[in-house]
Design a protein around this nucleic acid. Structure first.
Lengths: 201, 201
DNA sequence: CGAATATATTTCCACTGTAAATATTCTGGT
DNA sequence: ACCAGAATATTTACAGTGGAAATATATTCG
């Protein structure tokens, strides 16, 4: 068990994940296949069945890994002890950085059809990402009401905003001449609504 | 040319689009196939090639239709002449309604890999949707700067927010107990940032 | 050393999109 | 009315896909 190489290939699971991720970003989501990935590391196309069960299992493992990395992008060492506003800036900028660095994986992370959405590992990593956003969303929002309700709304609102921005960027839905030298941190204040929930002006 | 039925099938193009859409929402994006759709309306599986070219062409046509319908959802007759705040409420609520009513199609509308993204019809319909959002975003934002810059940012910000909300809802990324009796209009004010653009605290 | 387990392969199958050749139907000109 | 050409749809064939089942091989443990 101390030997790095075990069984036939060694630790096929990690190797397969790594290879699948390369294929994913190189050939896109439609170009990813078990057979192509298997050939890349010299195993048969049914080898991953022992480790992932099926294609859905492989994609779920990839996505779980993706959420874990996304969490890393959102917390930078420099701003670990800083105030919430600085941490929010780090989290949002890191979020978008991850998405633009891994666009195909990022798209897969929100697929409705291809993942095992009740996978406990996946749910845990999703929850970890949401917790980070929940923290930096705490002093947003001017809406009246019980504190926990306002906080809950702000979490939802902030994740909605940053996810939408990241996906629209990576999907190419924004015209590039609108985006010159603008980061997500420049965009966020622009949605601050003056529209009142009840009081006008 | 006055006869409703032409050629072998009639207007196969529209029939195929309709059938494909049914398969899409019934069996999901992974369950949609040319063969299944063709069998549904009793034609060979290569028949759509004349009308759509390839699978990408079919999906692009579906998505183009989707953007057109999304625009309809965003403009309600009742609020056509109302003030911008009312129109914004209609647009945002309609946007989310469309996404929740057509979740599989909505996901496809932002796919990076499967569409002919430079298709002129598609670009036109995407632009129409963006224009509607641009209109109702005009009085958002408190950031200083030239008016058109602020407006441009608000358009991007508002689309980011509402798209993110719609996708996270349809992808099941929000826990349901957080979402009780909340609509997108309740969430929007919660992101209004008190964070300063340049001055701390 | 041997049994049990974990890991990987081989083989086979149903299904997919696409290309090419063929057949059928419609259209427009004379 | 007729015929040529275009538009439309079918047939056939092919390479690729994921998955199931049986088999082979390596590891682990008693």
């Amino acid at each position: 068990m101390v030997s790095p190489r075990k069984y036939h290939h060694g630790n096929l699971k990690e190797a397969f994940l790594e290879a699948a991720r390369e294929v994913l970003e190189a050939d896109g989501l439609t170009g990813l296949s078990l057979r192509k990935t298997a050939e890349k590391i010299g195993v048969s196309h049914t080898a991953p069945k022992n480790h992932f069960g099926s294609m859905s299992g492989l994609l779920t493992a990839l996505v779980t890994q993706g959420y874990a990395e996304l969490a890393d992008y959102m917390v930078a060492d420099e701003t670990a002890g800083a105030d919430r506003c600085a941490r929010r800036g780090t989290a949002l900028a890191g979020y978008v950085d991850f998405a633009t660095a891994n666009p195909a994986l990022y798209e897969l992370m929100f697929a409705r059809d291809r993942l095992v959405n009740d996978d406990p590992d996946l749910m845990r990593e999703v929850g970890a990402c949401f917790s980070i956003l929940a923290d930096v969303a705490k002093d947003l929002g001017w809406h009246t009401g019980p504190a926990e309700v306002v906080t809950g709304k702000s979490q939802i609102a902030l994740w909605s905003f940053v996810h939408g921005y990241a996906q629209l960027i990576t999907a190419g839905r924004f015209k590039k001449d609108n985006m010159k030298n603008l980061s997500v941190l420049d965009i966020l204040p622009a949605i601050s609504a003056k529209i009142p929930p009840d009081t006008p002006e």
